[in-house]
Design a protein around this nucleic acid. Structure first.
Lengths: 152, 152
DNA sequence: CCGAGTGCTTACGTTAACGTCAACAACCTG
DNA sequence: CAGGTTGTTGACGTTAACGTAAGCACTCGG
């Protein structure tokens, strides 16, 4: 409830190995709005550190954002994406419970993605069929024109 | 504004070669609601014939509905799908204007789909990476357990 | 010290894609 | 012919995924 201080944050490409990025940098990089990034945070998909009241994103956060956008591009809801991000998240920082369960979950997610891929291939095949018909028709028209030319 | 007559319509699998289907049949077949099908009609994605006030769908309508659902499954909006359906539609019933233009449009649509496919493959690769890490970790745990067993 | 620039929060608005509900019509059945 | 099933058309509600706008905080350049 207390906005307090500010500070650009931007590329802290200094001695520290953990480079940080500001929200506008990320927005520009991925071509999305600030509002969208904050929205993803509200949804729990991102959890940047706060520095002087401003959001500071790590490379890891950027990867997550990339996954979010890819997920959207292939038709996943933010809820589904959150699901996948949880798999992608911290596994091994000490407890690492149920490795088998996690691997199973990942397999399931991969299977679903594969299903979508097959859907796409089916649609491409359908379109290719139509394309073939059109090409044949065009060829037929060309032949007809040739014939007309020969008749005159 | 006049609902008028009705009639089940259902499978007119009689002498006529153009089998017709009722809305409930389609809904059941594709596992969607009646409301959804009517909604697609409102959006211009479907245009079934009317028989006694009731909707009558042909095989062609079913194919279109299949494309709609596939499109949704891979993350296309209804507007985009309408776009593709227009390509899929009646080409050649007499006029067939701008064949080249149509073929170009189809190529563009296929390219977009291919882009989505690549996104999926990238995500699958990411997940596979995580999966590999988890498997290694599991193996390490197994070795540690073995060592403990040997020590006792 | 003042205004521009950047960021934060809160809150209301918007669009897409349906769901839900009401009221009515036609049909078949007992 | 009363009642149930199946269908139709509105009209309004809902959810997801943001957009837009208002108002305050802080910092920097002049």
């Amino acid at each position: 409830m207390n906005p307090s201080r500010r500070q650009p944050v931007h590329a802290a490409t200094s001695s520290s190995g953990d480079e940080l990025y500001g929200i506008t940098e990320l927005a520009a990089e991925y071509g999305i709005s600030l509002r969208t990034i904050r929205f993803y945070e509200d949804k729990g998909l991102l959890a940047p550190r706060r520095i002087n009241g401003g959001r500071a994103y790590t490379r890891r956060d950027r990867v997550r954002l990339g996954l979010i956008l890819r997920g959207k591009a292939v038709g996943m809801s933010l809820a589904e994406i959150e699901h996948i991000l949880s798999l992608y998240g911290e596994h091994g920082e000490g407890h690492a419970r149920q490795l088998d369960y996690l691997i199973g979950r990942i397999d399931a997610a991969m299977a679903e993605l594969d299903q979508r891929r097959r859907h796409i291939e089916t649609m491409v095949a359908e379109l290719d069929k139509v394309r073939g018909e059109l090409k044949r028709e065009r060829a037929a028209r060309a032949r007809a024109a040739k014939k007309r030319a020969g008749a005159t």
